[in-house]
Each structure stands twice: as structure tokens, then as C-alpha cells.
Design a protein around this nucleic acid. Sequence first.
DNA 1: TCTGGGGTCCTAGGACCC
DNA 2: TCTGGGGTCCTAGGACCC
Length: 423
Amino acid sequence: MSPIFAIVDCNNFYVSCERVFNPKLAGKPVVVLSNNDGCVVARSDEAKAISIKMGVPVFKISNLIKTHEVQVCSSNYALYGDMSQRVMTTLSEFTPDIEIYSIDEAFLDLSRFKRYNLTDYGHRIRSTIKKWIGIPVSVGIAETKTLAKIAGRIAKKSEKTGGVLDLTASPYLDRALAITDVEDVWGVGRSYSRFLKENGIKNALQLRDAGDSFIKKRMGIVGLRMVRELRGVACYSLERCLPPKKGITVSRSFKDSIKTLTEMKEAVAAYVSIGATKLRKERSAAGVIMVFLMTNRFQQERHYFNLETIQLPVPTSDTSELIQYAHEGLKKIYMKGYLYKRVGVMFKDLVPDGQIQSIFFDRRDRKRSEKLMLVLDRINDRMGSGTLKYAAVGLGRNQRWQTVFERRSPAYTTNWDQLLKVS
DNA sequence: TCTGGGGTCCTAGGACCC
DNA sequence: TCTGGGGTCCTAGGACCC
């Protein structure tokens, strides 16, 4: 049976999460900021309407914030992750054919509901999520993922749709493509959009009808697949289970620059800890670890970036072992005298932890480390991450490298002490 | 003064091999 | 003056996604 794709997309997800717990934010322009309250990463419709752009540094819009009384929130990833899980769980009750595509989006295969009115079904999904969780979503339905994305986009923007648009066997399909700017097609980014427009292809309809060889030559196989998807030929299927990760990266910018190796080592230890926990959750081990650091990339003079790659003798997910290697790498690239703005670690060459090739000269007690990590994860899982941590992370409470969230909402859903008080 | 973070896939070119 | 023809593997960089 040929699939029918639905994309369910949470509207302005981070802002909507904040609004669920803070009703004062309703109807007002709201933005959510990135780490260290740096850039705008989510905007309410009202914020979009006063042309606050995605990704803009918050200091550049301080006037706009003042004159329009924009509500500003730090990001609260624990909250968004938790809300996302609730949305996904609710969606799974509508169909088991679900692909969790990102924190705020899921594809569904609705082909088993063909006999029903899919628009009605979409509305049921939408109202259930609104009622149970409080998050508004849009639903786009079509024969391919790319077309579903287009449907979803129109559903979100057009009042008439009521948040749901079904483009399967629709007389409005061409119309929908014609009103979709080429840069809004899934898979067309800045560079392709410029190239396509230079060649007279300005909307999704024109892209659909472009010549195969032209597209293949200039945009490769990916571009060709995209055009085929616009024609209703499904090139991407529903990925029910997520494939194992190929790499894990943890890095942060610092609010203020850092000079000392001591502080850099603490930061690296902290990021390795986060990464190693993710690694174990994936049931993987890293064969290669990379450490990188850099000065402020927005300052031209005396910019420094360096990266060190370390091949591990045996793939591991042991936090303390990984910290050791990461520190060795850091020492090689750390140069005195620079003002560092960011450091990070990457785990690569991941292997499933059941298939680790051991070596003869292995002085480590791997069984013991495995047990230790199990206990560590269990405690941090139950009592909150950071309950148990390595001394290498440092003992201070407000280290200079730590990320700042000045306007963070409380952990309504994940911390008993911070439950919403009803008065 | 203040500028996020984490991914994937594809392609071209070099090294190397037969 | 002539100067093979494939393969494979790896890597860096580009493009995209959220």
C-alpha cells in the first residue's frame, strides 16, 4: 500500500511550551533565547509580525523589545524535551506508524486511514494535542514527505485551513505549489534558493516542472529526489526507528572568554560527561575523540581555532577514561595568551557496545567500569543529572565557563520542587 | 558589552592497489 | 612524441535540516 504522509509540526514550539505554563505570555510577542541568552531561537507569531528574525542576537533588537514589550525567555531544554515526549506519546495513540523527526515534528503514515476523511482525522489529532498538552500543531497531509511539508506550511499560515491541509488527490495541489516560494521547499537552503531564482525557478511549481538533467547536474542526486517528491513520487519512506547515531558532539560558548587551562579542562570534563552519558544511552562506545577550541569568531584579530583527534586503543564509553584522553588532546592545542570563547568534544567512530574489539595489552578493568557507569547513570537519572559528577568538572557552583540562563522558566515538569503553584 | 548547538548526506579529489 | 584504466577507501568541504 502506498503511504500517505502526515507531518505534525508544533507551532513555535519553545514559545508554545513556555505559554502552557505562563498564561501571561498569551497574545503577546514572545521570544526564546539560545544558550547564554545569546540569539533568538523561537518566536511567537506576534514576534514574527514585528519582524524579529530567527537567529538574531538579542542585543540587536533591544529597541524592538522595549517598544513592543516583547516577553523574553531563556531556553529551558528540560521542559521542551519533556513536552516533546508528551506530544509524541499522544501521536502514537493515533497510529503506530510514526517517525519522530525532530523535537517538534513527527511524520505519520496515515495510509491505514484512507477510508476516512483525512482532514477530519488531522483535526482530531490537532484538537487532542491542544486539549491534552496545550500545544498548537499544524498538520500537512500528502503523498510524499516533501509535499506533506508544503501542506503543513500552508496549514500553519492560512487561517482558512484551521491548521490542517490535505493535499492528497487535491484540485488545489498546483495552486499550493505555486504559492510556495522555492526557498520554503524542504531541501532548498540559502545557496540553492539563490541559484534556482537566478535560473527563473521561483516557486515550488516551477521547481517541480524543472528538467531532470539540469537539476541532477546542478543539485546532485538529492536535488533530483526532491523534485521527484514534488511530483508525488515518494523517495523517502517513514523511518519507524531511529538509526544509531554516527557521532556525538557537545560544545558550548562561554558568556565571557576564558584564559586558563584549568578552566578549559573543567569545561571539557563537563562536556565529556554529558557526551558519555548520551553515548551510553545509545549503547555505543567511541573509537575516536576529538577536542576543539576557538576564540571569538566575531573578532577578526588574533583568531585561533584548533582541533585534535585522538584514536582510542579500545572504543569506550567510560567517562573518566574519555576525560583523560580529552584532557591530553586539549593540552596539545591549548595555547597560552588567547581568550577562548568556546570548547567542545566530539565522539566519532561509534560502535555498538556489544561489539567492542578488545586488545591483548589492555590494562583497564572494563567490567568494573561498566558497572560503575551503570550506577552513575541510574543515580543521575533518578535524582537529576549532575547529582554525581567527576571532580575534574570542578567544585564551584558558578564557574565562568558555565552557561547562563538569566530568564529561565522553572522546571515545571521535571522537578518536584518547581511544580506550578496554583493560588 | 552582548552573536547557539547538534546533526545528516553527498561529492570531489587524493592515495593506493591491481 | 608518446604517457592505461579501473577499482576502493578515506577525507574535507558543502549543502541541508531542526
